[in-house]
């Protein structure tokens, strides 16, 4: 699935070749003692079970029901993570310095990394393809409203759009607005409404998705 310009031609064996090459590489690295037979699976399991968007969703849901926690999360994301019952590692790889910005009726935030794909791993896991797409990175910084509209987010002209680009240490993410009609929901129910896209500012949170 190439992005943007699809005039490039690819061989029909594109995926088969890459699958064979990466397996060749991994098997050689195991045989030569660089990694073990479990290393890659250990890493993948870490992101499937311990560090993923389910952590960010819990933080946002708690912030929606607890204004004092929300204030602490906005002031110091890493410290707020340490209050939660999360696995060790919330200030680990790609989460050493995280910050969250709040969407309000007046301000909508969207996150990008024009130089690469910096992303807050402990709270959101690994970046989805749209975030890594050079077309997204090139376009959202200059025409965020047009891009957000393509993603299904229509903003009134009165809403200020803030684009947060990540060229140094901070890994940014977004505290989305709580949707109407969720007043009686538990934190777990609220967390289930959240997506990585909402927590990077390219989607809004809806009750019936």
């Amino acid at each position: 699935m190439p992005s943007g310009y699809d005039g490039f031609k690819y061989g029909a064996d594109r995926e088969i070749y890459s699958a064979a090459k990466v397996k060749a590489l991994e098997s050689l690295l195991i045989e030569k003692g660089i990694i073990t037979g479990n290393t890659v699976d250990t890493i993948l399991s870490y992101f499937e079970t311990e560090m993923g968007p389910f952590n960010g969703a819990k933080l946002v849901a708690k912030a929606w029901v607890d204004p004092a926690f929300k204030a602490r999360l906005l002031a110091d994301c890493n410290a707020a993570c340490a209050e939660m019952d999360f696995p060790p590692g919330m200030s680990g790889a790609e989460g050493e310095h995280m910050r969250i910005v709040e969407n309000t009726p007046e301000v909508h935030n969207v996150i990008v990394c024009t130089l690469c794909s910096c992303y807050p791993w402990p709270t959101l896991g690994l970046p989805p393809y749209w975030f890594k797409d050079p077309t997204f990175r090139a376009r959202v910084v200059r025409e965020p409203r047009v891009v957000l509209k393509e993603f299904g987010v229509e903003l009134d002209d009165s809403v200020e759009v803030r684009v947060w680009d990540s060229s140094a240490q901070i890994r940014w993410w977004v505290l989305p607005m709580r949707p109407a009609g969720t007043e009686g929901m538990s934190e777990a129910q609220l967390a289930s409404l959240l997506t990585p896209e909402a927590m990077m500012g390219v989607a809004t949170v809806t009750v019936n998705r």
Binding site: E15, A19, V22, T39, L44, P127, W130, E150, F151
Partner: peptide, 24 residues
Amino acid sequence: LASINYETLVFVEPWEKRIFGIHT
């Protein structure tokens, strides 16, 4: 530039997981 590929998957082919793991 054209429209953005709104692909929400992290990995679109299983082999991609392996190179992510090797780099990490």
